[in-house]
Write a protein that binds this DNA or RNA. Structure first.
Length: 218
DNA sequence: GACCAGGCACATC
DNA sequence: GATGTGCATGGT
Protein backbone atom coordinates (compact mmCIF):
# COMPACT_ATOMS: atom_id res chain seq x y z
CA UNK A 1 0.00 0.00 0.00
CA UNK A 2 1.45 3.27 -1.09
CA UNK A 3 1.61 6.08 1.41
CA UNK A 4 1.43 8.83 -1.18
CA UNK A 5 -1.77 7.43 -2.59
CA UNK A 6 -3.25 7.04 0.88
CA UNK A 7 -2.41 10.61 1.84
CA UNK A 8 -3.71 11.86 -1.48
CA UNK A 9 -6.98 10.08 -0.93
CA UNK A 10 -7.24 11.46 2.57
CA UNK A 11 -6.83 14.93 1.12
CA UNK A 12 -9.47 14.33 -1.53
CA UNK A 13 -11.89 13.18 1.10
CA UNK A 14 -11.20 16.22 3.26
CA UNK A 15 -11.58 18.52 0.29
CA UNK A 16 -14.84 16.86 -0.65
CA UNK A 17 -16.18 17.28 2.87
CA UNK A 18 -14.96 20.76 3.74
CA UNK A 19 -14.18 22.48 0.45
CA UNK A 20 -11.07 24.64 0.03
CA UNK A 21 -10.05 26.14 3.35
CA UNK A 22 -8.51 29.28 1.83
CA UNK A 23 -5.62 29.67 4.25
CA UNK A 24 -3.83 31.51 5.80
CA UNK A 25 -6.10 34.20 7.23
CA UNK A 26 -4.10 37.41 6.86
CA UNK A 27 -3.70 40.07 4.23
CA UNK A 28 0.06 40.42 3.89
CA UNK A 29 3.12 38.20 4.26
CA UNK A 30 4.12 40.30 7.27
CA UNK A 31 0.79 39.73 8.96
CA UNK A 32 1.06 36.00 8.33
CA UNK A 33 4.56 35.88 9.77
CA UNK A 34 3.58 37.78 12.90
CA UNK A 35 0.49 35.59 13.23
CA UNK A 36 2.67 32.49 12.98
CA UNK A 37 4.51 33.51 16.15
CA UNK A 38 1.39 34.65 17.97
CA UNK A 39 -0.49 31.43 17.31
CA UNK A 40 2.10 29.23 19.01
CA UNK A 41 0.09 26.94 21.26
CA UNK A 42 -2.75 29.44 21.12
CA UNK A 43 -6.28 29.53 19.74
CA UNK A 44 -6.53 31.61 16.57
CA UNK A 45 -9.37 33.71 17.98
CA UNK A 46 -6.97 35.13 20.56
CA UNK A 47 -4.39 35.83 17.87
CA UNK A 48 -6.95 37.86 15.94
CA UNK A 49 -7.51 40.07 18.97
CA UNK A 50 -3.78 40.68 19.28
CA UNK A 51 -3.43 41.47 15.56
CA UNK A 52 -6.37 43.87 15.81
CA UNK A 53 -4.68 45.65 18.72
CA UNK A 54 -1.49 46.09 16.70
CA UNK A 55 -3.43 47.51 13.76
CA UNK A 56 -5.53 49.83 15.91
CA UNK A 57 -2.42 51.14 17.61
CA UNK A 58 -1.04 52.01 14.18
CA UNK A 59 2.19 50.10 14.74
CA UNK A 60 1.67 47.17 12.41
CA UNK A 61 4.77 47.61 10.28
CA UNK A 62 8.18 45.98 10.72
CA UNK A 63 9.84 49.31 11.57
CA UNK A 64 7.23 50.53 14.05
CA UNK A 65 6.95 47.22 15.83
CA UNK A 66 10.70 46.95 16.11
CA UNK A 67 10.87 50.44 17.60
CA UNK A 68 8.24 49.66 20.21
CA UNK A 69 9.44 49.14 23.79
CA UNK A 70 9.15 45.48 24.70
CA UNK A 71 6.56 46.13 27.43
CA UNK A 72 4.31 48.07 25.06
CA UNK A 73 4.49 45.35 22.46
CA UNK A 74 3.67 42.79 25.16
CA UNK A 75 0.69 44.85 26.25
CA UNK A 76 -0.73 45.00 22.73
CA UNK A 77 -0.45 41.27 22.18
CA UNK A 78 -1.80 40.33 25.61
CA UNK A 79 -4.89 38.50 24.28
CA UNK A 80 -2.67 36.00 22.46
CA UNK A 81 -1.24 34.72 25.73
CA UNK A 82 2.45 34.17 26.67
CA UNK A 83 2.75 37.84 25.87
CA UNK A 84 6.17 38.39 27.42
CA UNK A 85 7.67 35.42 25.64
CA UNK A 86 6.03 36.30 22.36
CA UNK A 87 7.03 39.96 22.54
CA UNK A 88 10.62 38.78 22.90
CA UNK A 89 10.21 36.30 20.03
CA UNK A 90 8.66 38.89 17.75
CA UNK A 91 11.49 41.22 18.68
CA UNK A 92 14.01 38.57 17.67
CA UNK A 93 12.30 38.06 14.33
CA UNK A 94 12.01 41.78 13.70
CA UNK A 95 15.70 42.15 14.48
CA UNK A 96 16.56 39.63 11.77
CA UNK A 97 14.25 41.40 9.37
CA UNK A 98 15.67 44.84 10.16
CA UNK A 99 19.28 43.78 10.44
CA UNK A 100 19.63 41.67 7.36
CA UNK A 101 16.83 42.84 5.08
CA UNK A 102 16.32 46.48 6.04
CA UNK A 103 12.89 45.62 7.35
CA UNK A 104 11.71 44.62 3.91
CA UNK A 105 9.82 41.36 3.45
CA UNK A 106 10.40 41.43 -0.34
CA UNK A 107 14.15 41.37 0.31
CA UNK A 108 13.82 38.46 2.67
CA UNK A 109 11.60 36.73 0.11
CA UNK A 110 14.45 36.64 -2.39
CA UNK A 111 16.37 34.11 -0.32
CA UNK A 112 16.32 30.47 -1.39
CA UNK A 113 14.02 28.31 0.68
CA UNK A 114 16.55 26.20 2.56
CA UNK A 115 18.80 29.12 3.44
CA UNK A 116 15.83 31.09 4.66
CA UNK A 117 14.52 28.19 6.68
CA UNK A 118 17.84 27.91 8.47
CA UNK A 119 17.91 31.62 9.15
CA UNK A 120 14.43 31.53 10.61
CA UNK A 121 15.22 28.48 12.73
CA UNK A 122 18.25 30.31 14.09
CA UNK A 123 15.96 32.98 15.55
CA UNK A 124 15.24 32.25 19.19
CA UNK A 125 11.52 31.60 19.39
CA UNK A 126 11.05 30.33 15.85
CA UNK A 127 10.89 26.55 15.73
CA UNK A 128 10.14 24.22 12.82
CA UNK A 129 6.41 24.76 12.71
CA UNK A 130 6.59 28.54 12.92
CA UNK A 131 9.35 28.67 10.30
CA UNK A 132 7.46 26.39 7.94
CA UNK A 133 4.21 28.34 8.38
CA UNK A 134 6.10 31.44 7.38
CA UNK A 135 7.68 29.71 4.39
CA UNK A 136 4.51 28.09 3.10
CA UNK A 137 1.82 30.62 3.89
CA UNK A 138 3.67 33.93 3.79
CA UNK A 139 6.36 33.20 1.21
CA UNK A 140 4.64 30.48 -0.83
CA UNK A 141 7.38 27.91 -0.67
CA UNK A 142 6.51 24.21 -1.09
CA UNK A 143 7.16 23.19 2.52
CA UNK A 144 4.72 20.96 4.38
CA UNK A 145 3.72 22.25 7.82
CA UNK A 146 3.39 19.74 10.64
CA UNK A 147 1.57 20.51 13.86
CA UNK A 148 -0.18 18.88 16.79
CA UNK A 149 -3.34 18.45 14.70
CA UNK A 150 -1.47 16.76 11.89
CA UNK A 151 -0.03 14.26 14.31
CA UNK A 152 -3.34 13.68 16.03
CA UNK A 153 -5.22 13.12 12.80
CA UNK A 154 -2.55 10.87 11.30
CA UNK A 155 -2.34 8.82 14.49
CA UNK A 156 -6.06 8.37 14.54
CA UNK A 157 -6.02 7.29 10.91
CA UNK A 158 -3.26 4.79 11.59
CA UNK A 159 -0.78 6.68 9.41
CA UNK A 160 1.60 7.73 12.20
CA UNK A 161 2.73 6.49 15.59
CA UNK A 162 4.07 8.18 18.68
CA UNK A 163 6.35 9.83 19.42
CA UNK A 164 5.61 13.10 17.69
CA UNK A 165 8.61 13.73 15.46
CA UNK A 166 8.46 16.81 13.26
CA UNK A 167 11.12 15.94 10.64
CA UNK A 168 9.84 12.39 10.26
CA UNK A 169 6.24 13.48 9.76
CA UNK A 170 7.28 16.24 7.39
CA UNK A 171 9.30 13.79 5.30
CA UNK A 172 6.27 11.50 5.16
CA UNK A 173 4.38 14.17 3.28
CA UNK A 174 7.15 15.71 1.24
CA UNK A 175 8.69 12.46 0.02
CA UNK A 176 5.39 10.90 -0.96
CA UNK A 177 3.46 13.82 -2.40
CA UNK A 178 3.91 16.30 -5.17
CA UNK A 179 5.69 19.38 -3.81
CA UNK A 180 3.13 21.99 -4.65
CA UNK A 181 2.39 25.18 -2.72
CA UNK A 182 -1.39 25.27 -3.23
CA UNK A 183 -1.70 21.60 -2.38
CA UNK A 184 0.42 21.82 0.78
CA UNK A 185 -1.39 24.97 1.81
CA UNK A 186 -4.83 23.45 1.63
CA UNK A 187 -3.87 19.99 2.90
CA UNK A 188 -2.45 21.37 6.12
CA UNK A 189 -5.45 23.65 6.53
CA UNK A 190 -7.76 20.68 6.03
CA UNK A 191 -5.92 18.67 8.69
CA UNK A 192 -6.24 21.53 11.18
CA UNK A 193 -9.92 21.88 10.39
CA UNK A 194 -10.51 18.17 10.87
CA UNK A 195 -8.49 18.11 14.10
CA UNK A 196 -10.20 21.20 15.40
CA UNK A 197 -13.77 20.21 14.81
CA UNK A 198 -13.92 16.44 14.67
CA UNK A 199 -10.76 14.48 15.39
CA UNK A 200 -10.61 15.35 19.08
CA UNK A 201 -9.94 13.32 22.15
CA UNK A 202 -13.20 12.47 23.79
CA UNK A 203 -15.07 12.76 20.53
CA UNK A 204 -16.30 9.73 18.64
CA UNK A 205 -14.45 8.96 15.43
CA UNK A 206 -15.77 11.06 12.60
CA UNK A 207 -16.83 9.46 9.32
CA UNK A 208 -13.44 10.34 7.87
CA UNK A 209 -11.70 8.01 10.31
CA UNK A 210 -10.80 4.48 9.13
CA UNK A 211 -12.43 2.85 12.16
CA UNK A 212 -15.68 4.49 11.28
CA UNK A 213 -16.07 3.41 7.71
CA UNK A 214 -13.27 5.09 5.83
CA UNK A 215 -11.18 2.52 3.97
CA UNK A 216 -8.79 4.77 2.15
CA UNK A 217 -10.98 5.77 -0.74
CA UNK A 218 -12.76 9.06 -1.18
C1' DG B 1 -13.60 25.28 37.30
C1' DA B 2 -11.19 22.15 34.52
C1' DC B 3 -9.43 21.66 30.03
C1' DC B 4 -7.66 23.07 25.72
C1' DA B 5 -5.45 25.97 22.07
C1' DG B 6 -2.40 26.01 14.60
C1' DG B 7 5.12 25.76 20.21
C1' DC B 8 9.38 26.71 21.86
C1' DA B 9 13.37 27.07 24.82
C1' DC B 10 15.56 25.70 28.72
C1' DA B 11 16.74 22.95 33.03
C1' DT B 12 17.67 18.73 34.84
C1' DC B 13 18.69 14.01 35.08
C1' DG C 1 19.24 12.04 24.47
C1' DA C 2 14.97 11.79 26.89
C1' DT C 3 11.80 13.91 29.92
C1' DG C 4 9.71 17.82 32.53
C1' DT C 5 8.48 22.63 33.03
C1' DG C 6 7.35 27.67 32.33
C1' DC C 7 4.99 30.72 29.63
C1' DA C 8 -0.85 33.07 29.93
C1' DT C 9 -5.07 34.45 27.72
C1' DG C 10 -9.83 33.40 26.51
C1' DG C 11 -13.43 30.05 24.78
C1' DT C 12 -16.00 25.81 25.70
Amino acid sequence: MELGRELGELYQRLLGSFGHRNWWPGETPFEIMVGAVLTQNTAWLNVEKALANLKEAGVFTPAKMAALPREELAKLITPAGYYNVKAQRLGNFLALLAGKYRGRIPSLAKRPTQALREELLAVNGIGPETADCMLLYALERPVFVIDAYTFRVLSRHGLARAPYDYPVLQAMFMENLEQNVEFYNDFHAQLVHLGHHFCKRGKPLCDLCPANGWRGRP
